[in-house]
Design a protein around this nucleic acid. Sequence first.
DNA 1: TTGTTATTGTGAAAAATAGAACAATATGAT
DNA 2: ATCATATTGTTCTATTTTTCACAATAACAA
Lengths: 208, 208
Amino acid sequence: MITNKNCIIRLSRYKNALYRLQDLGFVKVFSDNLADAVGGTASQVRKDFSIFGISGNKKGGYQIDSLLEKLNSILGKDQLQKVIVIGAGHIGSALMRYRGFEKEGIKIVAGFDIDPAKINRSNPVPVYPLEEARAFIKTNQIRIAILAVPDIAAQQAVDLICAAGIKGVLNFAPLGLKTPEGSIVNNVNLEIELENLIYFVNVAEKTR
Amino acid sequence: MITNKNCIIRLSRYKNALYRLQDLGFVKVFSDNLADAVGGTASQVRKDFSIFGISGNKKGGYQIDSLLEKLNSILGKDQLQKVIVIGAGHIGSALMRYRGFEKEGIKIVAGFDIDPAKINRSNPVPVYPLEEARAFIKTNQIRIAILAVPDIAAQQAVDLICAAGIKGVLNFAPLGLKTPEGSIVNNVNLEIELENLIYFVNVAEKTR
DNA sequence: TTGTTATTGTGAAAAATAGAACAATATGAT
DNA sequence: ATCATATTGTTCTATTTTTCACAATAACAA
């Protein structure tokens, strides 16, 4: 079983690069093309594919369309993924307005907030009171949630949604969350990403 | 020289956890407290510290305040970091309004967009035409930029800002960017993060 | 048909990262 | 003052991840 997050992220990158190549009219691709496109090595591309039993043609590379089919299937993109957003502040509402998810087969179906002023049941993506989240998750069998609430509210919110059936949380709150066995958290922390960038920029500057 | 991104990210997490502990009134901390707080192991905490020459007291743990000083210094948080945002769409403007960076010593000083309708020189974070970016970066010696433009515009925008002196880019566009030697890109790709989450949720579901 | 070449697929080697183990030692108890 | 204990710092070990290297082979040319 594959537990290597970076490997799966690379699969997503390959997939995205393949769509761009396809748009440019390409029909087949070689491992070194993909390596260039995502910034890796050709043997890593082949190794990644080999892990998932994806094979190409000796001297012929890979057919882009069938490769995309396989990657999409691995990545669960053969069915629409319904996602909810907890927290309708700046980040949460930007995410609800963001159109980029649609073309990836990801649909934000609702938002939830504790603040009555944020509720709006007739938005393109409706925003409901947080206390309705539990029922919504169960009724619609939602498995994935984006958490965009202030840090002080984050653990409580996660407890609530995981108890209701959420299995995966994309966490924007800047702190680690405890989840019950069987639920997964991926953290997106912009402050930390920036700090990281600053660190490596500083290091590069010093060692130059 | 440290090239381990995960290690630096852990330092940021330790730092954040330490502030929370400090707020709760704690004065000292042990490696296993920090491990719990960020979800790692105690020996990794100590190993991380040892890499940077941070030492505590046998049986006494670490003084939170001096530990924070050291981490903040390593992470470059002893000076205000000025950052610009390229692209004033949904994500870009949410970032400009986002208050969370301030308490981290990160200040978004300006935004830039190619669309005249987005320009607003009197915003709290002013938005200027993209063609003014070059001069702004040079004049204000900006080193870090957040890139939040449509993918089709991303490579061109990066070329522009790197030529003007940007050394680190936090890239929200969903594709890999080529940068000149000496500049660094960190990618934040929400679609990929969600895909990743979906993959691991699916795997967990299948193997259960 | 035969030979040449380009490219895959994979096993083995290397490098990077994480974890376990434990000696050293500061602290507090008696 | 001595002992017992808790915790660090670090070395050694294990695991994970990446890279290398090359045999296998499909495509193409002569």
